[in-house]
Design a protein around this nucleic acid. Structure first.
Lengths: 121, 121
DNA sequence: ATTTTGTTCAACCATATGGTTGATTATAGT
DNA sequence: ACTATAATCAACCATATGGTTGAACAAAAT
């Protein structure tokens, strides 16, 4: 329940706070890729993409296997489970507010129906 | 399935990538607080804490109600649901790898048992 | 042996971030 | 009217971030 490894979560959240890196994760989820393949879709130098990769690696979200001169990258999704865990605590709060939203919508709907009924009668 | 509002997620993840801000959220989850109360537990100036709050607000994670000279802050957990949604896509991957981990541990265990048996015999 | 390929490294740049302090503003209390 | 309180704002500082380019390095291909 207590936050045990804040630095670690820092790294993970920071890594996720960039659209390029999130897109890289998405692509890695469809299968391992070499660094240059991973970098190719982005309007950015290879060195730039390589830096992003390092951020993902440092966060533990990507694993790299060096094979000769090519580096194979793979998604390490297990670390995302930590985010999920962190988030779990808050689930009740947003479901509560979503419930409230739902209730409000329902009430609105009822009110609308009532108005309709009045109009009909 | 596609990432519709990357900037928004950027703001949320960035806001979460700091232990002070995560702690603020945690405290807000136990009830609304005035800015100065929120700031008090941290070894930091009020202005510093106020900046953190602004980051949380910009991310939509905190709502503020100004009442006279005091500002009341409340958790806006609904935005965390977006993180949850983003995360949902990856759930299968980490449960897969956790399964793999489990299998590996089991195999290790079996191997250990086999060794023990050998040693016993 | 030379060249090409895959990748990182180092240096640099502009901007963002996390913090400070001192001034400012607006409301509340005396 | 004065003073104290709640909070932001503005200016500043050090460091981090996201990007670039050019050089370096190791492995493959010719």
């Amino acid at each position: 329940m207590v936050e045990q490894n804040p630095e670690h979560l820092d790294n993970i959240f920071r890594a996720l706070a960039d659209p390029t890196r999130r897109e890289m994760l998405r692509r890695l989820s469809r299968g391992g890729q070499r660094v240059s393949d991973l970098a190719e879709p982005f309007a950015m130098s290879l060195a730039g993409a390589s830096k992003h990769l390092k951020v993902l690696e440092k966060a533990g979200l990507v694993r790299r296997r060096v094979q000769g001169r090519t580096h194979w990258c793979e998604l390490e999704a297990a670390r995302l489970a930590e985010v999920h865990e962190w988030l779990a605590y808050y689930k009740r709060f947003w479901s509560r507010s979503l419930d409230a939203l739902e209730a409000a919508l329902k009430a609105e709907d009822e009110a609308a129906k009532a108005t309709q009924n009045k109009e009909e009668s």
